[in-house]
Protein backbone atom coordinates (compact mmCIF):
# COMPACT_ATOMS: atom_id res chain seq x y z
CA UNK A 1 0.00 0.00 0.00
CA UNK A 2 1.33 3.37 -0.99
CA UNK A 3 -0.12 6.25 0.97
CA UNK A 4 2.05 8.90 -0.63
CA UNK A 5 -0.30 8.92 -3.61
CA UNK A 6 -2.83 10.64 -1.37
CA UNK A 7 -0.54 13.66 -1.30
CA UNK A 8 0.98 13.58 -4.73
CA UNK A 9 -2.38 13.14 -6.49
CA UNK A 10 -4.46 15.04 -3.99
CA UNK A 11 -5.94 17.58 -6.39
CA UNK A 12 -6.83 15.08 -9.09
CA UNK A 13 -8.42 12.68 -6.59
CA UNK A 14 -10.39 15.57 -5.15
CA UNK A 15 -11.68 16.65 -8.54
CA UNK A 16 -12.64 13.13 -9.61
CA UNK A 17 -14.30 12.53 -6.26
CA UNK A 18 -16.47 15.57 -6.72
CA UNK A 19 -17.37 14.64 -10.30
CA UNK A 20 -18.29 11.08 -9.31
CA UNK A 21 -20.16 12.46 -6.31
CA UNK A 22 -22.21 14.73 -8.57
CA UNK A 23 -23.34 11.71 -10.60
CA UNK A 24 -24.15 9.76 -7.43
CA UNK A 25 -26.10 12.74 -6.16
CA UNK A 26 -28.51 12.68 -9.08
CA UNK A 27 -29.22 8.99 -8.54
CA UNK A 28 -29.30 9.05 -4.75
CA UNK A 29 -31.94 11.78 -4.84
CA UNK A 30 -34.32 9.23 -6.36
CA UNK A 31 -33.78 6.86 -3.45
CA UNK A 32 -34.23 9.56 -0.89
CA UNK A 33 -37.30 11.18 -2.46
CA UNK A 34 -39.13 7.87 -2.83
CA UNK A 35 -38.14 6.84 0.67
CA UNK A 36 -39.59 10.08 1.92
CA UNK A 37 -43.05 9.44 0.54
CA UNK A 38 -43.24 5.61 0.66
CA UNK A 39 -40.89 4.74 3.54
CA UNK A 40 -39.49 2.12 1.19
CA UNK A 41 -36.24 1.67 -0.64
CA UNK A 42 -37.00 1.57 -4.34
CA UNK A 43 -34.93 -1.45 -5.24
CA UNK A 44 -35.54 -1.00 -8.95
CA UNK A 45 -34.17 2.56 -9.03
CA UNK A 46 -30.74 1.34 -10.14
CA UNK A 47 -32.36 -0.20 -13.21
CA UNK A 48 -34.06 3.09 -14.00
CA UNK A 49 -30.56 4.53 -14.16
CA UNK A 50 -29.34 1.65 -16.32
CA UNK A 51 -32.20 2.24 -18.73
CA UNK A 52 -31.12 5.87 -18.97
CA UNK A 53 -27.58 4.94 -20.01
CA UNK A 54 -28.94 2.93 -22.91
CA UNK A 55 -31.34 5.71 -23.86
CA UNK A 56 -28.38 8.12 -23.98
CA UNK A 57 -26.43 5.67 -26.09
CA UNK A 58 -29.45 5.10 -28.32
CA UNK A 59 -29.68 8.78 -29.19
CA UNK A 60 -26.07 8.98 -30.30
CA UNK A 61 -26.49 5.80 -32.32
CA UNK A 62 -29.57 7.16 -34.05
CA UNK A 63 -27.68 10.34 -34.81
CA UNK A 64 -25.10 8.18 -36.55
CA UNK A 65 -22.15 8.43 -34.19
CA UNK A 66 -19.84 5.46 -34.49
CA UNK A 67 -17.08 6.50 -32.11
CA UNK A 68 -14.56 7.27 -34.84
CA UNK A 69 -15.55 10.90 -35.40
CA UNK A 70 -13.56 13.91 -34.45
CA UNK A 71 -14.88 15.37 -31.16
CA UNK A 72 -17.61 17.93 -31.67
CA UNK A 73 -17.33 21.67 -31.32
CA UNK A 74 -18.85 23.16 -28.23
CA UNK A 75 -22.19 24.17 -29.74
CA UNK A 76 -22.72 20.95 -31.65
CA UNK A 77 -21.79 19.04 -28.53
CA UNK A 78 -24.26 20.93 -26.38
CA UNK A 79 -27.02 20.27 -28.90
CA UNK A 80 -26.33 16.54 -29.11
CA UNK A 81 -25.81 16.13 -25.39
CA UNK A 82 -28.89 18.12 -24.42
CA UNK A 83 -30.96 15.96 -26.74
CA UNK A 84 -29.48 12.75 -25.32
CA UNK A 85 -29.93 13.88 -21.73
CA UNK A 86 -33.51 14.91 -22.41
CA UNK A 87 -34.38 11.62 -24.03
CA UNK A 88 -32.71 9.73 -21.19
CA UNK A 89 -34.59 11.83 -18.62
CA UNK A 90 -37.92 11.23 -20.36
CA UNK A 91 -37.23 7.51 -20.77
CA UNK A 92 -36.15 7.01 -17.17
CA UNK A 93 -38.88 9.24 -15.82
CA UNK A 94 -41.63 7.37 -17.63
CA UNK A 95 -40.10 4.03 -16.71
CA UNK A 96 -40.06 5.07 -13.05
CA UNK A 97 -43.73 6.07 -13.21
CA UNK A 98 -44.62 2.81 -14.90
CA UNK A 99 -42.67 0.97 -12.24
CA UNK A 100 -44.67 2.66 -9.52
CA UNK A 101 -47.93 1.63 -11.14
CA UNK A 102 -46.91 -1.96 -11.80
CA UNK A 103 -44.87 -2.84 -8.73
CA UNK A 104 -46.09 -0.59 -5.95
CA UNK A 105 -49.50 0.96 -6.41
CA UNK A 106 -51.78 -2.00 -5.93
CA UNK A 107 -49.79 -3.24 -2.94
CA UNK A 108 -49.99 0.18 -1.36
CA UNK A 109 -53.74 0.32 -1.86
CA UNK A 110 -54.14 -3.12 -0.29
CA UNK A 111 -52.00 -2.08 2.67
CA UNK A 112 -49.69 -4.98 1.93
CA UNK A 113 -46.77 -5.43 4.28
CA UNK A 114 -43.39 -3.94 3.50
CA UNK A 115 -41.88 -7.29 2.68
CA UNK A 116 -44.33 -7.74 -0.21
CA UNK A 117 -43.54 -4.33 -1.67
CA UNK A 118 -39.82 -4.97 -1.43
CA UNK A 119 -40.13 -8.34 -3.13
CA UNK A 120 -42.29 -6.84 -5.85
CA UNK A 121 -39.68 -4.15 -6.49
CA UNK A 122 -36.88 -6.71 -6.53
CA UNK A 123 -38.84 -8.74 -9.07
CA UNK A 124 -39.25 -5.65 -11.24
CA UNK A 125 -35.55 -4.95 -10.93
CA UNK A 126 -34.63 -8.49 -11.93
CA UNK A 127 -36.97 -8.27 -14.91
CA UNK A 128 -35.45 -5.03 -16.16
CA UNK A 129 -31.86 -6.22 -15.83
CA UNK A 130 -32.60 -9.45 -17.61
CA UNK A 131 -34.61 -7.72 -20.30
CA UNK A 132 -31.71 -5.41 -21.06
CA UNK A 133 -29.24 -8.26 -20.86
CA UNK A 134 -31.13 -10.05 -23.58
CA UNK A 135 -31.69 -7.09 -25.90
CA UNK A 136 -28.14 -5.75 -25.46
CA UNK A 137 -26.62 -9.18 -25.93
CA UNK A 138 -24.72 -9.09 -22.57
CA UNK A 139 -22.12 -6.90 -24.26
CA UNK A 140 -20.15 -3.89 -23.08
CA UNK A 141 -21.41 -0.92 -25.06
CA UNK A 142 -19.10 1.97 -25.79
CA UNK A 143 -20.27 5.53 -25.92
CA UNK A 144 -18.73 7.68 -28.65
CA UNK A 145 -16.39 10.43 -27.57
CA UNK A 146 -18.46 13.55 -28.10
CA UNK A 147 -16.09 15.94 -26.46
CA UNK A 148 -12.40 16.57 -26.56
CA UNK A 149 -11.09 15.19 -23.28
CA UNK A 150 -7.69 16.84 -23.42
CA UNK A 151 -6.90 18.92 -20.40
CA UNK A 152 -8.16 22.46 -20.60
CA UNK A 153 -6.08 23.65 -17.70
CA UNK A 154 -4.35 22.18 -14.70
CA UNK A 155 -4.90 22.83 -11.00
CA UNK A 156 -2.13 21.15 -9.06
CA UNK A 157 -2.17 17.56 -10.28
CA UNK A 158 -5.79 17.79 -11.42
CA UNK A 159 -6.41 17.92 -15.14
CA UNK A 160 -9.60 19.84 -15.64
CA UNK A 161 -11.37 18.51 -18.72
CA UNK A 162 -14.48 19.67 -20.51
CA UNK A 163 -16.55 16.61 -19.61
CA UNK A 164 -15.91 17.13 -15.91
CA UNK A 165 -16.98 20.73 -16.18
CA UNK A 166 -20.14 19.72 -18.03
CA UNK A 167 -21.00 17.13 -15.35
CA UNK A 168 -20.41 19.52 -12.49
CA UNK A 169 -22.24 22.47 -14.00
CA UNK A 170 -25.14 20.31 -15.21
CA UNK A 171 -25.53 18.48 -11.93
CA UNK A 172 -25.49 21.67 -9.88
CA UNK A 173 -28.04 23.26 -12.18
CA UNK A 174 -30.33 20.26 -11.76
CA UNK A 175 -29.97 20.35 -8.00
CA UNK A 176 -30.99 23.98 -7.92
CA UNK A 177 -33.98 23.27 -10.17
CA UNK A 178 -35.01 20.39 -7.93
CA UNK A 179 -34.73 22.54 -4.85
CA UNK A 180 -36.98 25.15 -6.46
CA UNK A 181 -39.53 22.50 -7.45
CA UNK A 182 -39.67 21.03 -3.97
CA UNK A 183 -39.81 24.42 -2.27
CA UNK A 184 -42.21 26.34 -4.46
CA UNK A 185 -44.51 24.17 -6.58
CA UNK A 186 -47.75 22.67 -5.38
CA UNK A 187 -46.61 19.12 -6.02
CA UNK A 188 -43.31 19.89 -4.35
CA UNK A 189 -45.16 20.98 -1.26
CA UNK A 190 -47.20 17.79 -1.59
CA UNK A 191 -44.01 15.73 -1.50
CA UNK A 192 -42.89 17.52 1.63
CA UNK A 193 -46.29 17.09 3.23
CA UNK A 194 -46.55 13.37 2.48
CA UNK A 195 -42.98 12.86 3.67
CA UNK A 196 -43.84 14.39 7.00
CA UNK A 197 -47.19 12.80 7.66
CA UNK A 198 -49.13 10.88 5.06
CA UNK A 199 -52.37 10.58 6.98
CA UNK A 200 -52.61 14.24 7.81
CA UNK A 201 -51.75 15.11 4.20
CA UNK A 202 -54.71 13.08 3.02
CA UNK A 203 -56.93 14.90 5.47
CA UNK A 204 -55.59 18.21 4.22
CA UNK A 205 -56.62 17.29 0.70
CA UNK A 206 -53.27 16.23 -0.75
CA UNK A 207 -53.76 13.76 -3.60
CA UNK A 208 -51.28 11.17 -2.36
CA UNK A 209 -51.43 9.04 -5.52
CA UNK A 210 -50.45 12.02 -7.65
CA UNK A 211 -47.72 13.07 -5.27
CA UNK A 212 -46.22 9.58 -5.26
CA UNK A 213 -46.38 9.33 -9.05
CA UNK A 214 -44.74 12.75 -9.30
CA UNK A 215 -42.01 11.68 -6.86
CA UNK A 216 -41.17 8.66 -8.99
CA UNK A 217 -41.16 10.90 -12.06
CA UNK A 218 -38.69 13.36 -10.52
CA UNK A 219 -36.48 10.56 -9.20
CA UNK A 220 -36.56 8.87 -12.61
CA UNK A 221 -35.77 12.04 -14.56
CA UNK A 222 -32.84 12.85 -12.28
CA UNK A 223 -31.49 9.32 -12.65
CA UNK A 224 -31.97 9.52 -16.42
CA UNK A 225 -30.11 12.81 -16.78
CA UNK A 226 -27.54 11.51 -14.32
CA UNK A 227 -27.05 8.54 -16.59
CA UNK A 228 -26.27 10.87 -19.49
CA UNK A 229 -23.54 12.52 -17.38
CA UNK A 230 -22.33 9.07 -16.43
CA UNK A 231 -22.03 8.10 -20.10
CA UNK A 232 -20.17 11.28 -20.91
CA UNK A 233 -17.70 10.65 -18.08
CA UNK A 234 -17.22 6.87 -18.27
CA UNK A 235 -18.12 6.32 -21.96
CA UNK A 236 -19.39 2.76 -21.51
CA UNK A 237 -22.36 0.85 -20.20
CA UNK A 238 -23.63 -2.67 -19.72
CA UNK A 239 -26.89 -4.25 -18.60
CA UNK A 240 -25.62 -4.62 -15.03
CA UNK A 241 -24.23 -1.10 -14.73
CA UNK A 242 -27.03 -0.13 -12.36
CA UNK A 243 -26.21 -2.57 -9.63
CA UNK A 244 -22.97 -1.21 -8.24
CA UNK A 245 -23.85 2.37 -9.05
CA UNK A 246 -27.14 1.83 -7.27
CA UNK A 247 -25.37 0.51 -4.20
CA UNK A 248 -23.10 3.54 -4.20
CA UNK A 249 -25.95 5.99 -4.68
CA UNK A 250 -27.97 4.27 -1.99
CA UNK A 251 -25.01 4.35 0.38
CA UNK A 252 -24.72 8.06 -0.32
CA UNK A 253 -28.39 8.54 0.51
CA UNK A 254 -28.00 6.62 3.77
CA UNK A 255 -24.83 8.53 4.57
CA UNK A 256 -26.73 11.78 4.32
CA UNK A 257 -29.75 10.42 6.17
CA UNK A 258 -32.28 8.75 3.93
CA UNK A 259 -35.32 10.91 3.32
CA UNK A 260 -33.19 14.03 3.65
CA UNK A 261 -32.66 15.70 0.27
CA UNK A 262 -29.73 17.95 1.13
CA UNK A 263 -28.23 15.10 3.13
CA UNK A 264 -28.27 12.92 0.01
CA UNK A 265 -26.32 15.57 -1.88
CA UNK A 266 -23.72 15.91 0.84
CA UNK A 267 -23.54 12.13 1.28
CA UNK A 268 -22.89 11.71 -2.45
CA UNK A 269 -19.90 14.01 -2.46
CA UNK A 270 -18.53 12.50 0.72
CA UNK A 271 -18.85 9.01 -0.72
CA UNK A 272 -17.38 10.03 -4.07
CA UNK A 273 -14.32 11.42 -2.30
CA UNK A 274 -13.93 8.44 0.02
CA UNK A 275 -14.12 6.09 -2.96
CA UNK A 276 -11.52 7.98 -4.98
CA UNK A 277 -9.06 8.30 -2.14
CA UNK A 278 -9.46 4.75 -0.87
CA UNK A 279 -9.22 3.26 -4.37
CA UNK A 280 -6.00 5.19 -4.93
CA UNK A 281 -4.47 3.38 -1.98
CA UNK A 282 -6.16 -0.02 -2.00
CA UNK A 283 -6.76 -0.48 -5.69
CA UNK A 284 -9.86 0.00 -7.75
CA UNK A 285 -11.09 -3.58 -7.21
CA UNK A 286 -11.67 -2.83 -3.52
CA UNK A 287 -13.88 0.17 -4.19
CA UNK A 288 -17.15 -1.70 -3.77
CA UNK A 289 -15.96 -3.51 -0.67
CA UNK A 290 -15.14 -0.12 0.85
CA UNK A 291 -18.56 1.22 -0.14
CA UNK A 292 -20.29 -1.71 1.43
CA UNK A 293 -18.33 -1.40 4.65
CA UNK A 294 -19.28 2.28 4.85
CA UNK A 295 -22.91 1.35 4.31
CA UNK A 296 -22.85 -1.26 7.06
CA UNK A 297 -21.05 1.03 9.50
CA UNK A 298 -23.44 3.92 8.92
CA UNK A 299 -26.52 1.73 9.20
CA UNK A 300 -25.26 0.16 12.38
CA UNK A 301 -23.88 3.14 14.22
CA UNK A 302 -25.64 6.16 12.81
CA UNK A 303 -28.73 5.01 10.89
CA UNK A 304 -30.01 8.58 10.71
CA UNK A 305 -26.95 9.49 8.68
CA UNK A 306 -24.46 12.32 9.07
CA UNK A 307 -27.24 14.88 9.36
CA UNK A 308 -29.45 13.02 11.78
CA UNK A 309 -30.96 16.11 13.31
CA UNK A 310 -32.32 17.49 10.07
CA UNK A 311 -33.70 14.08 9.30
CA UNK A 312 -35.56 13.89 12.59
CA UNK A 313 -37.24 17.17 11.85
CA UNK A 314 -38.02 16.16 8.32
CA UNK A 315 -39.68 12.94 9.37
CA UNK A 316 -41.55 13.54 12.60
Amino acid sequence: MDFSILWTDFASLLLDGIVVGAIYALVSLGYTLVYGVLRLINFAHSEIFMLGTFATLGVTMLLGFTGFEEPLGILAFLGVFLLAATVAGVASGSAAMLLEVVAYRRLRRNNANRLSSLISAIGASLFLVEFFRIITDSKDWDFPRLLDKNSLFQVGTAYVTADKIVVLVGAFALMIILDRIIQTTKLGRGIRAVSQDERTSILMGVDVDRVIAFTFLIGGVLAGVGSAFYMLFYEATKFNVGFLLGISAFTAAVLGGIGNIRGALAGSFVLGLIQQFSSAVLGYNWRDVVTFIILVLVLLFKPTGLFGEALQRARV
Partner: peptide, 10 residues
Amino acid sequence: FGLLMVVMMN
Protein backbone atom coordinates in the same frame (compact mmCIF):
# COMPACT_ATOMS: atom_id res chain seq x y z
CA PHE B 1 -38.80 -15.15 -12.47
CA GLY B 2 -38.81 -11.39 -12.11
CA LEU B 3 -42.26 -11.09 -13.60
CA LEU B 4 -43.51 -13.89 -11.38
CA MET B 5 -42.36 -12.09 -8.24
CA VAL B 6 -44.20 -8.92 -9.18
CA VAL B 7 -47.34 -10.80 -10.19
CA MET B 8 -47.40 -13.04 -7.12
CA MET B 9 -46.99 -10.13 -4.74
CA ASN B 10 -49.79 -8.29 -6.48
